[in-house]
Amino acid sequence: MATRNRTFMFKRYRDALKTVRLPSYTSDAGGGGPVIEMTNKQTRSYAPLSTIDPGTSSFVGTPTVGLPPAWVDVSEEIAANIQRARSKLSELSKAHAKALMPSFGDGKEDQHRIEALTYVVTDLLKKSEKRLRKLSAGGPLEDSTIRKNVQRSLATDLQSLSVELRRKQSHYLKCLQQQQKESSDGVDLEMNDSGKHSKSEDDGFDGLGFSEHQMAKLKKSEAFSMEREREIQQVGESVNELAQIMKDLSALVIDQGTIIDRIDYNIQNVAATVDEGLKQLQKVAFVSIIFFHLSPSRAKSETRGNGNVRYSTCGPVLSDVGSLNHQGDSLLILLLFNIINMSDA
């Protein structure tokens, strides 16, 4: 891919012309330069872009260096938050790995750490998501298009981060449940991987003390499983929170490969109208898909009008959940309700 850089020639011409031009130059000084937009924030990481060297052209009526609009600060703040969330997330995944390592007793510390980190990341995501809304507001057409695009781009980042967090959590959750199952499933299993799970404790136990030891262990594992249950519940809740964030974001993120992702389409169609339509569309799609796949009685409800679907959802799903019979029931109900509710929101 050949390219040719003409900048040198261009600058030479420009410099040559400058000397000719200088005298008549001052006349258009102060000719309605762009207005400086002031923001009340003192600290800004943003360096105003000035390509004009004040030394060479100070007396010339160059355009006033416009400060960027206030929303630029917001977007930078969000970007910084995303950055922080990302680094916290990698800490979290390390903590997960550590917590899953076989150990009894002092898992509490890890647990707290995980809780704290999860909270921080989720909080950062939630905060960013809330700030993100501030970006879209009226104003001149071009500016609002830019904002919308900045918003989209940040939303895409946020979404991928949320997905990552969720993946990590559900992986952690799965491992937790597996461990729980193993520890409560029976002693045999425990015996078999005793080497893996509790090396130090099992060291040197003999045939005689077997059943007592077992009893003690059983009790321990009961307590342990209660504890784990709680953990699972916690993770479940944060998954739930994430689902909310995801849903809010998905209205902003562009589906790749679709017409909305085409550059020329975006030029033709002024962003505002597209976005609104998209939002509505996704709302409908989300509700109907959740409904479609959760309810066994979907054939019946499918025939109902679109508007009815939303309300008729709760009924069959609830009765359905009642018949489910395994751990996590209550969580599932919670989740379902939340998803249904948030589609209404």
């Binding site: 762009p34 071009e142 895409t156």
Partner: peptide
């Protein structure tokens, strides 16, 4: 479009349309 957003291109315009607006966007 989403690839452009990744490269921090937040506005795409045609050359004849961009001269319609006079508002400064020095950022």
């Amino acid at each position: 479009q989403s690839e452009l957003l990744q490269k921090e291109v937040f506005l795409v315009e045609l050359v004849d349309a961009i001269s319609m607006s006079k508002e400064s966007m020095s950022h």
